[in-house]
Amino acid sequence: MAEGGLSVEFPGSLKSSTLPPPRTRIFKIIVIGDSGVGKTCLTYRFSAGKFPEKTEATIAVDFRERLVEIDGENIKIQLWDTAGQERFRKSMVQHYYRNVHAVVFVYDVTNAASFRSLPAWIEECKQHALGTEVPRILVGNKCDLQDSIQVGTDVAQQFADAHSMPLFETSAKNPNGQGDGSFGGGNSDHVEAIFMTVAHKLKSQKPLVLSQPPVGSGGTINLSRGMNGGGDGARSWGCSSC
């Protein structure tokens, strides 16, 4: 890092003088997981409200944000979309782990290897001094691809439980239902619900552990199966307002 070799001392007053006075709270969420699991699509879906037509490999880190209102307070949600290739996380992305409020781990339900990598990603977080007090969630993406599923909900749920994380299965492409993706324009976007859930959690600072498992097996909030039923899961997390 350039700043490492160039540390220059600045009085704190300098910094505050350049800031505008009204302060919107910022929740910084880092999204990590193997290459190709759909991190860019998920964060794009949340920030732009649609599935991106073409996404490319993310190099180092991309930044997306969205202003939301939670219980009358304006909150800026910053999503740091990271590169999946190992070489980037080893020496480049660490800068972005600082002051992270929450972590979203993503795997691809049609790619067992991406699920098997999760322990390494969790370890990675630990190394960056992100303890269990930082809310973490697990997202299984691409569950619209019903015919190619390699990671069953049961095994994913077991893993999530073992690491005290809630599990969400969804599809950035088709977050509201199955099939041809024609539901994309609907009102209840489950990818949005996932990130809003995290935001609510951060705002309330209450434990992000399910006390009452909603619909779906073993406490999974399955946000893809059944376009009407899925919303219940989100609602039980208290984000129906979004």
């Binding site: 890092m1 350039a2 700043e3 220059v8 600045f10 480049m92 972005y96």
Partner: peptide, 26 residues
């Protein structure tokens, strides 16, 4: 790491602003 020193040579103010922001070079 060559980026910030170049900026420093040309525009110290800009350089210092970026150091304060801790933006890094990524």
């Amino acid at each position: 790491n060559y980026l910030m020193p170049i900026l420093e040579q040309v525009d110290v103010e800009l350089h210092d602003f970026m150091i304060r922001a801790e933006v890094g070079t990524i």
